[in-house]
Design a protein around this nucleic acid. Sequence first.
DNA 1: AACCAGGACGTGA
DNA 2: TCACGTCATGGT
Length: 225
Amino acid sequence: MNKIYKIYQLLYKTYGPQGWWPFISSGYHVLDYSFPKNSDEIFEVCLGSILTQNTTFTSVVKSLNNLHVKAAINPDKIESMDIETLKIAIRPSGYHNQKARYILEFIKFYKSLNGAVPTRDELLHVVGIGPETADSILLYGYNQLQFKVDAYTKRVLIKLGLIDEKAKYHDIKLLMENSLKESVKDKKELHIVYQEFHALIVNHAKEFYSKKPYGVGCFLKDIIT
DNA sequence: AACCAGGACGTGA
DNA sequence: TCACGTCATGGT
């Protein structure tokens, strides 16, 4: 068994299932992987994925609630909104000028899909959608086998000596995906592992990797060596 | 008060 | 390609 999967197992045993993506109407959904249930929830994941760039999800929830009370977690509704109103609604999650534009750019793309599943490459061509946001949308919104790498993932893996400090997004993504594919053969189970793993890393890193020096008290170091 | 949060883009070298 | 500045609000 490879080290990456060992880390997953230890995190899962320690923290349990995370029910990662919270929905405005139904909240977290621990051990229920039947989400998103409809196009409204898919769009909500896309919106949240953009809004959460370099911000905490608690701030994103405030923004999503602001939109929700206007019944505006909907592509047409947002497009027809006054842009200043949109900016005010998403202000809690920061960068409201940029993110308002990103959201409107994404909606144009989203509507052109007509319900189809976007490819990763297509998403990357939308202004405001980088690798992590694309993977977030695909993994949590469209149930695709794309591992989402974030700053915490990199930080933890560097501390454990599993990647180089100069490792790039794609390097880390490949390490995670290849390691997990090797350990988990069932596709549905693998998808669940992708979702839970990212959530578990964030949960763990918030405690042990958010302030310097990183990794103090991190119990993952024990099983790696 | 300084620092960082579930990043992406534009610029110059 | 790559390092660096910028974007903004909220919590610790």
